[in-house]
Amino acid sequence: MRILIIEDDQVLAAGLKVGLGLAGMTVDLVGSCAQAGEALATTAFDAVVLDLMLPDGSGLDVLRGMRQRKDRTPVLLLTALDEVADRVKGLDLGADDYCGKPFDLDELAARVRAIGRRGGGRAAPCLTAAGIALEPSTLSATLNGQPLALSRREFAVLALLMEHPGAIRSKGEIEDRLYGWGEEVESNAVEVHVHHLRAKLGREKIETVRGLGYRVQVAP
């Protein structure tokens, strides 16, 4: 999952980046409403974690702007205000979930996964296709019931391909999912990850669609 964190407190933001990174997410950070607008305009995220009190305005304005632009990216609000009225206001403005500060990192990660899942139109937490099962909450994978050791990036590539089994994902899409801004991307990184995955899963599981990208074989 690629997520955007809009939080002005640098210590907390750094913690979120590392913490959610440990949960297998690719995290980008911005610290103001203005930067959030730019980030949302240029990059597709699977979920947004939004702090309500930002130096140049309210996170609710960012949320309102997103929903006015018909941006359907799921949003989780992070706020120090935990009065019911504040929560209701945020949810009614189009937020998908809510976490009060201070929060539990595991709970926050679970909530982000949940809104990402719903945003992707799925209900089951597990991704299954072609005998492969992925458990995003534990970053564990099985092939025909046998545990499979995958690196964080391999897991992310496979998870993207398995969100909609049979759908073609381009190399660019996969790169966007894997790497946040400022991360060095080797030109053949995606090929390398796919190569490793094929070695672990078997060649036929991931099909190359020439000129378009990759997809997971649906037929057994």
């Binding site: 407190d9 210590v11 907390l12 750094a14 913690g15 979120l16 590392v18 913490g19 440990l22 309500l52 009190m53 992070l78 706020t79 120090a80 205000l81 935990d82 009060g100 500060k101 201070p102 929060f103 539990d104 990192l105 595991d106």
Partner: peptide
């Protein structure tokens, strides 16, 4: 109240997050 809640709880949230990272990493 809102400013106070933000200023008091945000450092705590950071503290807790990093503590959990230190335990999990």
């Amino acid at each position: 109240t809102a400013f106070a809640a933000h200023e008091l709880r945000t450092p705590l949230a950071g503290l807790k997050t990093h503590a959990q990272i230190a335990m999990a990493a």
